[in-house]
Amino acid sequence: MAAAAAAGAGPEMVRGQVFDVGPRYTNLSYIGEGAYGMVCSAYDNVNKVRVAIKKISPFEHQTYCQRTLREIKILLRFRHENIIGINDIIRAPTIEQMKDVYIVQDLMETDLYKLLKTQHLSNDHICYFLYQILRGLKYIHSANVLHRDLKPSNLLLNTTCDLKICDFGLARVADPDHDHTGFLTEYVATRWYRAPEIMLNSKGYTKSIDIWSVGCILAEMLSNRPIFPGKHYLDQLNHILGILGSPSQEDLNCIINLKARNYLLSLPHKNKVPWNRLFPNADSKALDLLDKMLTFNPHKRIEVEQALAHPYLEQYYDPSDEPIAEAPFKFDMELDDLPKEKLKELIFEETARFQPGYRS
């Protein structure tokens, strides 16, 4: 834990890192770190609560700039109880001085990944967590956004079992017609939660990839272990087919990539493993919904509104309290091709509203 900075004593240090967030945020305490930044909790002297502050230093890398800009653009436009918001952003007053960006968010005690390492969940908890994931996802999908990296560590939890989806750095506007060349190379989302079509096709992607990830998360809540822990690309596919069985001819016809289709045709026939054999203690309604989410063919996979209306979630289902976005989200430009200098300018502009004396 960093010592509390005395008023006016300059930035606090946390594990050798400068955290320049005073005077409003003090009493910093280390939480963890990701690929390009550290997260601390801090005391907000204005709202009198502890908050989470993520320090991001992305400006050396085009990919990190892209992810940072995506996350900020999306989260500043989203407003939903099951999606983490941005409360404040701290950065230098000029673009030349801006080396880091500090993002202030609600402090959540833990995440689903940490929880599943230590606790076996009751059916009631599984049901409530799944409902909140789908409630947040309904809003995301209504904005025409794909999260693309749903996994237990991106689901934040607090002691009252509130759940918030975080990390929109890989999110995209849904565009089933656009052929994202190089899709697989830039697709760094965790393999275990990846839909089979991501490994088999490169053309376009749809909201059904997020539903697949939610199915993987439900299976993990039922058993405290990942359902498809593939060691590499082909191993991942083999794990999936080992449980779902061989795809039907109709399902194979959806695979545009001939090499991928021929690979699947070359494999020995596998039978589907019954879900109640894998999860003998699970609620039968939970397994019915799991089956509809972990469907090989993305066109037959359940959609988020149908999933919310499934009998497993009937005690929570309330369409009048499951809000959607006001308007579909649009990125003005494809960020993939922009140089990091341009992305830095866009991050600077996007964060201006939090600067003292800002006038829109």
Rank of each mutant, 00 (worst) to 15 (best):
K48C: 12
P11C: 14
A309Q: 05
Y102Q: 08
E303N: 02
K270Y: 03
L184V: 08
L218V: 08
S41E: 05
Y139L: 13
N262Y: 14
Y187L: 05
K207N: 12
Y263L: 14
L287F: 06
W212M: 10
L222A: 11
A325G: 03
L115G: 01
Q119W: 03
Y205A: 04
L244W: 03
E305Q: 05
Y187W: 05
H125Q: 15
I256N: 14
M13H: 13
G204K: 11
K231T: 05
R301V: 06
N271F: 02
Q66S: 04
H232E: 06
G204C: 10
P247T: 14
A5P: 02
A309S: 14
K207F: 11
L155S: 02
F348K: 12
S246G: 02
K114Q: 14
V14H: 08
T206V: 12
P58M: 03
D175N: 13
R353N: 04
F129A: 06
Q355K: 15
K73T: 08
D337P: 03
I56R: 08
Y263G: 03
Q97I: 02
N297I: 15
P226I: 03
H120M: 11
K117F: 10
K151A: 06
K48L: 12
V273M: 09
D100L: 02
K138F: 05
G22E: 13
E109L: 12
L252M: 14
A219N: 08
Y358H: 12
H120Y: 10
C216E: 12
H61Y: 08
L267W: 00
V21Y: 10
F183P: 08
Y113C: 10
L163A: 06
L308E: 02
F129Q: 08
E250C: 05
V46F: 11
L218R: 04
N297W: 06
E345A: 01
R301K: 14
K55Y: 11
N87D: 03
L252F: 03
I89H: 01
H147V: 08
D100C: 02
P229H: 15
A42D: 00
A2I: 00
A282T: 11
Q249A: 08
N201L: 07
K292F: 07
H299G: 08
L76W: 00
I133V: 03
K73A: 13
G357K: 11
D111Y: 15
E334F: 00
I74V: 13
P176L: 12
H239D: 11
F296C: 09
N123W: 08
F329W: 01
L278I: 04
K54G: 07
N201A: 07
H180M: 11
D88H: 09
L137N: 11
L313A: 09
W275Y: 10
W212D: 10
I53G: 01
A4T: 11
M333T: 08
P58K: 01
K164P: 10
D179S: 03
W192H: 12
R225H: 11
F78L: 15
L163Y: 06
F331R: 01
G204P: 11
G10S: 11
C166M: 01
